[in-house]
Design a binder for these strands. Structure first.
Length: 261
DNA sequence: AGAAAGATGCCCT
DNA sequence: GGGCATCTTTCTT
């Protein structure tokens, strides 16, 4: 394949706005992870914005900790966290160092390395639709783990990076990153549309938005964005607290069940 | 030190 | 639709 255009990595400016503005612009952009096994790339179809210390649902709400430190760092880096004892999820950090805005990548359509993605996924659904549907599945398909926490996705030399889609991947004309608009005041939530323009919009696709999935706080804020009608978008699920695991018969019970008088 | 909840996914009924 | 796997972080004694 000679003459294939070099990948257009997203400029760091793309992440200069708040997550609420950046999130819709990321729809259609391609996240790719180059590993010794091969390369897998997904075009993002569903994302969620988390607005740092002002957002009760954000990991950063209660301030900086060792876990969420990357969120407080410079924009354009990946914040990867481990949850439920078995899953990884990946965010892209927005706003300058010191703030903690980030976009959770919830789903994508595999556009490259589908066989490898399928091999990594234990239970891929029909047609590959489920290969990267859901934040943990997306990480599994791309082999994103703790090792990628802090990775600079704006560095062309990075194994984990985000690029503009190629024309065939965008489903139409895809001229490259549009001029950035609304790189305005930071630290406050801006209405969607005030930020960068993304591939999904430029390709004429429609973007939907609604409440975020599985969050217990600020469930009314419509900060989830997805490509309207795309089959790879995950199903909405409201936050449902799991019942506490049945405790031992008594906290004072001994291993054989005896309870001291 | 201990516990409770978690930005989930899978399997079962 | 509901239970469960499984471990880390963070908040409460």
């Amino acid at each position: 394949m000679r003459g294939e255009a070099a990948a257009v990595i997203l400029p760091r400016d793309m992440f200069a706005c708040s997550a609420v503005a950046v999130a819709p612009a990321l729809l259609g952009c391609v996240l790719e992870h180059d590993t010794p096994e091969g390369l897998v790339a997904v075009a993002l179809t569903e994302v969620e914005a988390y607005h740092g210390k002002a957002d009760p649902a954000s990991h950063a709400y209660r301030g900086q900790t060792p876990r969420n430190a990357v969120m407080f760092g410079p924009p354009g880096h990946a914040y990867v966290y481990f949850t439920y004892g078995m899953h990884f999820c990946v965010n892209l950090v927005c706003l300058p160092e010191g703030t903690a805005s980030a976009v959770l990548l919830r789903a994508g359509r595999v556009v490259e390395g589908e066989d490898l993605a399928r091999a990594r996924r234990t239970a891929p659904g029909p047609g590959g639709r489920d290969l990267a549907r859901g934040p943990a599945r997306l990480c599994q398909a791309l082999a994103i783990t703790r090792a990628q926490n802090g990775a600079d996705v704006c560095d062309p030399a990075s194994r984990l990076r985000v690029r503009w889609p190629r024309p065939a991947e965008a489903g139409g004309g895809s001229p490259g990153p549009a001029k950035l608009t609304g790189t305005g005041p930071m630290g406050s939530a801006e209405p969607a549309g005030a930020g960068p323009v993304g591939p999904a919009e430029l390709a004429g696709g429609s973007i939907s938005h609604g409440p975020r999935v599985g969050v217990s706080a600020a469930g009314d804020v419509p900060w989830r964005f997805w490509v309207t009608g795309d089959p790879t978008v995950s199903v909405y699920r409201a936050h449902a607290p799991r019942r506490a695991r049945p405790k031992p018969v008594s906290a004072r019970a001994q291993s054989d069940g005896t309870i001291p008088l």
